[in-house]
């Protein structure tokens, strides 16, 4: 494959172990250009390890990882200039203020921060706080600075590890809109999270990792359809009956007792239920 072309992310048989503890095992992943990919998994499943492998911050024991068709180990500086990254355990530089932090990371990225002001505004970051040292920031403000740093140079690929940690619901909504806008602009977003709601709202496809292995990969709608729906029946005498149904709707109609039925509510399986079923109840 010609370097610079191909899927945004591609891994083949990617494995890494930390002594006896598996980090990631045999990971085959493909994320297309312009796609928002939700990478789900419980704590310690291997999400952050996968991200570190994709950025060459950690070297695999076997297998390979490619970004835009280029092997990450050999892609070097040019490849990483196309990536915006938010680490899961974000640590900033306490002696810099917000503005200096963003300028410094802009300088290191080698690209102009064309989106900085827009992202600051959309994430409701108070402009006057930019001149304060980051050590005085709250967790949420630090997270916003990390997000602005990842988005500011309009990278082709955004790799975001637990991006909504510490954000209030309004800013979280603004962030999800921002992700959708990047998708519209043809950018790729690889979003790791264990908050299912946000993946549900913005991802095109979902990969589910548990115990260091990719357990499931699908579109969000396919994933939902693969699970039984919850059907709630309400009767005139106040009775309420709930049942799980998977398959043809006619079969359900044959099964239910229709006398006195006043309401039928069909709830699609939530991502949360899918998640719990795959990871064996060890959900977030």
């Amino acid at each position: 494959m010609k370097p610079g072309s191909g899927p945004a992310i591609e891994t083949r048989g990617l494995s890494v172990r930390f002594g006896d503890v598996p980090g990631v095992l045999d990971l085959d992943l493909e994320v297309g250009v312009g796609e928002v990919y939700g990478f789900l998994g419980p704590n310690g499943a291997g999400k952050s390890t996968t991200i570190r492998l994709l950025l060459d911050l950690l070297r695999p024991d076997s297998g390979e990882a490619r970004v835009f068709g280029t092997e990450v180990r050999t892609g070097g500086a040019r490849l990483r200039a196309d990536i915006g990254f938010l680490p899961g355990d974000l640590a900033l530089f306490p002696f810099l203020n917000g503005f200096q932090t963003l300028r410094f990371l802009e300088g290191l990225s080698g690209r102009r921060a064309t989106l900085r002001n827009e992202v600051l505004e959309r994430l409701h970051f108070p402009t006057d706080a930019l001149r304060r040292p980051v050590r005085t920031y709250s967790t949420g403000m630090r997270q916003k600075i990390g997000l602005v740093a990842a988005f500011q140079h309009d990278p082709r690929l955004l790799i975001l590890d637990e991006p909504t940690t510490g954000l209030d619901p309004i800013v979280r909504d603004a962030f999800l809109e921002l992700v959708n806008d990047r998708r519209v602009a043809g950018r790729t977003v690889f979003l790791s999270s264990h908050v299912l709601d946000e993946i549900d709202r913005c991802a095109d496809r979902v990969g589910l990792i548990a115990d260091a292995r990719l357990r499931m990969e699908s579109t969000v709608s396919e994933l939902r359809e693969s699970r039984p729906r919850t059907v709630v029946l309400r009767y005139a005498d106040g009775r309420r009956e709930s049942r799980q149904h998977h398959g043809e709707p006619n079969a359900l109609l044959d099964e239910i007792h229709r006398e006195g039925l006043v309401d039928v509510e069909v709830r699609p399986a939530s991502l949360d239920e899918v998640f719990r079923s795959v990871v064996g109840g060890d959900g977030p």
Partner: peptide, 17 residues
């Protein structure tokens, strides 16, 4: 040690550089 090395090395800055 404090976890900010990842942030630096995810940019154009290589380990050698």
């Amino acid at each position: 040690g404090r976890g900010s090395l990842d942030l630096l090395l995810a940019t154009r800055l290589s380990r050698t550089r």
